[in-house]
Design a protein around this nucleic acid. Structure first.
Lengths: 212, 212
DNA sequence: CAGTGGTCTAGACCACGCA
DNA sequence: GCGTGGTCTAGACCACTGC
């Protein structure tokens, strides 16, 4: 699945590295190939089909397996912190309220595709850090805290991978990404979770139905 | 809203055009600036917030106006054709069945942001080409054909603007795009419309709610 | 340590937008 | 017809990967 080196390609096509790189970047934007930082160019695997309407009910691991991928999750960090002005306003809580910040990395067949940052209200979910956070978070919230998702707000846009995230995904700077911003409300209408998900743009397609 | 020329920028920053262009392309991928083919670089306006869950009920023109944009629609072409194998399979009709193909270009404040290709079953929507197709299509279907959307299937992914579409959007080759593929079913469960929408990636964010 | 991708220089020519 | 962006050449050095 690895392409020949850029120097090799430029000789084969009697052109220069600059030109070859431009062509490779077109294919990258198109989603056909991707890079791992300083390791080379690779053919992109098929996209994961992601259905936001079942999110919170069906776990990443389950639907990835259904589609023939070997998924894995790595907990990067968890810390107890407090809401700054931005977080407080988005989560509709007071500035200074305690929140857990959980960062995870998710991979398909060993390829990192998703960087997840989750902010969770610590007052509603005490001692969250004592649990195993590499599995399904929503299954955990259901079984340990009787917390279920009543409503989810999504905002999806195309942007760039921030530098730290690019590093975590072994991606070079400037790779485009699909950004999910998500808020979950529980049965009482409280926003208990506020997430940022950053996907490699070539790793995902979003599929869902709307009924009128 | 126009940036200085690339040559000017490279002098100002004591570097070469190649390097400046790389930097500009980073900002382009990030969505902060955009190009119009051979006309220069411009600051990107705010994104249109698009809610797929109200699509079919609220028109492009209406929600664009609500957000302070001046929307416009241009009919590029309409023709009566027949379903090839791909279209037939996607629309669940027989190969050779008649379909209207409608192509439209939509702009915000004079900036082309969306290329729309719609395929509509001609047997269910006879003489569609006699109507004004620069307004809301679904309003037309409702009033003239008593056709309402019961269910909509979405597939959203990031890709590149195809060359002909890039040209229509006055975009250079290789600009990334957000692709919507959409199927509408009527009250009888028939797929009467199959769309491809290509958005400039920096012109749109998708916002919607899911209720469990 | 050899080879890779990431970054950069200093030019060049062409096609097109604009006046 | 001038200036623009789009494309290309022929090099270079560095930081890092993989052996």
């Amino acid at each position: 699945m690895k392409l020949p080196s850029e120097r090799e390609l430029s000789e084969q096509h009697s052109t220069t590295r600059v030109t070859i790189r431009e062509a490779l970047k077109l294919l990258e934007t198109e989603g056909l190939i991707y890079r791992e930082n300083r390791r080379g160019w690779f053919i992109s695997p098929p996209k994961l089909r992601y259905d936001p309407s079942v999110h919170g009910r069906v776990s990443f691991v389950d639907y990835a397996r259904q589609q023939g991928f070997q998924p894995s999750t790595q907990l990067l960090s968890i810390k107890l912190t407090v809401a700054d002005r931005y977080i407080a306003s988005e989560m509709q809580i007071a500035v200074g309220k305690p929140v857990y910040q959980v960062n995870r990395l998710r991979s398909l067949d060993g390829r990192p595709v998703l960087y997840e940052q989750m902010l969770l209200r610590a007052d509603l979910l005490p001692n969250l850090d004592r649990f195993d956070l590499e599995g399904s978070l929503h299954a955990l919230l259901r079984s340990e805290y009787k917390m279920t998702v009543q409503k989810a707000d999504f905002e999806i846009s195309v942007s760039i991978l921030p530098n730290d995230v690019a590093q975590a995904l072994a991606a070079p700077m400037g790779v485009s990404s699909l950004k999910f911003q998500r808020k979950y409300r529980n049965q009482h209408g409280e926003i208990f979770e506020f997430d940022h998900e950053l996907w490699r743009h070539d790793a995902i397609s979003i599929n869902f139905d709307i009924n009128n």
